[in-house]
Nucleic acid binder design. Structure first.
Lengths: 321, 321
DNA sequence: AACAAAATGCATCATTCTTTGCAATCAATC
DNA sequence: GATTGATTGCAAAGAATGATGCATTTTGTT
């Protein structure tokens, strides 16, 4: 009984695996990096013949279904002898299979997102509850991707620029306005002179006119980019105003027209873009700002918290019911 | 060489374990539910003597360090004979250790968040980069907690109410205004009559005056609750306006004064609350809305998308550079 | 096409693991 | 405080795993 029930996680991942096989061939992929095993795979690439490389590629990609296998089971899974498994991991530089198994688990843990487990069920007749779950798991995946791909140093670099800037203007239109507002509000709380102008392109352009090279523009837009936001970035460039963008890819206009940028996925399961990962990125920026110049920010925060919590702003039972 | 490097994940979790030992004793906890193993642990509680129950409690809680152990290693870890491990899992109803191991892995996977691994490093001298990473991992944990604790049916229930409502007013002040704005904007895109009034309490109260029992109020506030938001919820109750709250606990004023509510954690690592999980919750609500009355919403969305993408709003290279 | 080098599969052994019988220990009840 | 039933540890048996020498196949080169 335990058995039948417990095998439900392993549904049918064969199809999706097969499909992703072609494009990636078996070469190293950049996103392997970050785990001991992934790094070793990259390093030792020259010591691996094509079939071994391919074998490892599959084991790593399918870590969610291989991390708990014995060498024999792994052999069975990929139609090779267990000795081949052993010798392949030895070619990677591991002395014992147990060492490899450990690193494979680590690899699995850092790459894991529940969404990858659910993706197998690409059924057509999803219930609404399924879609809700899927949405959350996609958010989790986006966020996890952000976590593994983000370079903390880059975030710190932004924090540094924010620290140096006299004024900070955050631009976001439509849905991205949410993010712009969140960032500028957070920065204000940390004591920075930040704002996120809303309104038509005219309002924004006017706001930009007074910016100088001592200020900082943070435009936020995804995909093709909304006109007003991109125009703002270009204006900033013309006026030598430093700019730092938040977007979802290296090829987006924001990435092109800003001095540097941060990438956070807005990939969605349904029709509505998910701004969860960018929100987390903004959070990270705020944290970096707060801690990279502790005296000033923390002092501001403390002050803010004080007047905030002592003040009249919180609800108190006394006032009614 | 593989060995030394690969043991870095296992730092020192003993202290934190010990500390959390007292309060939870060894009794079943609600958050065990949701995995085959957790459920079985709850069910079979009566068949377990205190020491076995305690043993399992620890194994489940420390799943991140036990999921890959053999029965022997588990025995060593908890200072019992491996036979005790075997018989304990048999008392749970498992026939073979392998079955238990499988469910333990599943348990681990559903509970895992990278933050739990990092928490061990409660050093005092964190670098800024560490704090950035920690912030992201905390976000991930909050989001994961939301995912495991959320009841999709509840989200669908909200969606149902939103569908029925004539007008929807979302209230959020300060940081929560970001969320309010995001929700109302999303709803508008789906074709609902929603808005998120900003401004002083007076503005909000005026906006509420015209609401009736056919409308819906969605206040968003966390912790102690901001006065204006709570007052809005209470006003709604007085006027028989249905209300649905988003907050971070069952004991918050929002939870008390709203007809029903959704919980999303804003727990943070630094000084700034993280609104990542609530953002995901809002996303989930929007997805549920979009799919629970497909005809209307999807039609609206399609229309919206069309005029949006064909329109002048996107950036196009032609216009400059 | 022939050869050398490398890789794989098979068979095997030493190691480790799971499971169970048995004796000792512990806990609860009369 | 003795007795009984449940639980644990110990030890051993049986099953599975990891690792390696040897024969065979594959790959790449001349």
């Amino acid at each position: 009984m335990a058995k039948s029930e417990s095998s439900r996680l392993v549904i049918d991942n064969v199809s999706r695996r097969a499909e992703s096989e072609d494009k990636n061939s078996s070469a190293t992929r950049e996103d392997d990096a970050g785990t001991a095993l992934g790094n070793r795979f990259i390093e030792q690439q020259s010591n691996l013949n094509p079939s071994r490389s391919k074998l490892l590629r599959r084991i790593l990609d399918e870590a969610d279904e291989t991390y708990y296998l014995s060498s024999r089971d792994m052999g069975r899974r990929y139609d090779v002898n267990s000795a081949t498994i052993i010798r392949t991991i030895q070619a990677l530089g591991y002395e014992k299979f147990a060492d490899f198994a450990h690193d494979l688990r680590e690899h699995f843990v850092t790459k894991i997102t529940p969404y990858s487990a659910m993706r197998a069920a690409e059924q057509t007749d999803l219930t609404v509850a399924d879609r809700v779950r899927q949405s959350l798991e996609k958010d989790l995946e986006n966020l996890n991707e952000l976590r593994t791909s983000i370079d903390p140093e880059k975030v710190i670099e932004i924090a540094g620029r924010i620290n140096l800037a006299q004024r900070i203007v955050v631009i976001g239109v439509d849905f991205a306005a949410t993010l712009a507002w969140a960032l500028s509000y957070g920065l204000v709380r940390l004591g920075f002179d930040a704002d996120a102008p809303i309104g038509s392109g005219g309002v924004i352009q006017n706001r930009l006119k007074i910016l100088t090279s001592k200020d900082l523009l943070i435009p936020i837009s995804f995909g093709r980019g909304l006109k007003e936001t991109i125009e703002a970035a270009k204006t900033a460039r013309r006026q030598n105003v430093p700019s730092f963008g938040i977007t979802n890819g290296d090829a987006t206009p924001i990435a092109r027209y800003c001095d540097s940028h941060l990438i956070a996925s807005i990939a969605r399961t349904s029709f509505i873009d998910s701004y969860v990962a960018p929100m987390a990125a903004i959070n990270a920026i705020l944290v970096a700002c707060a801690h990279s110049q502790s005296e000033r920010s923390l002092e501001h925060l403390r002050q803010f918290e004080e007047e905030y919590s002592s003040g009249e702003r919180w609800y108190s039972e006394a006032s009614g019911e």
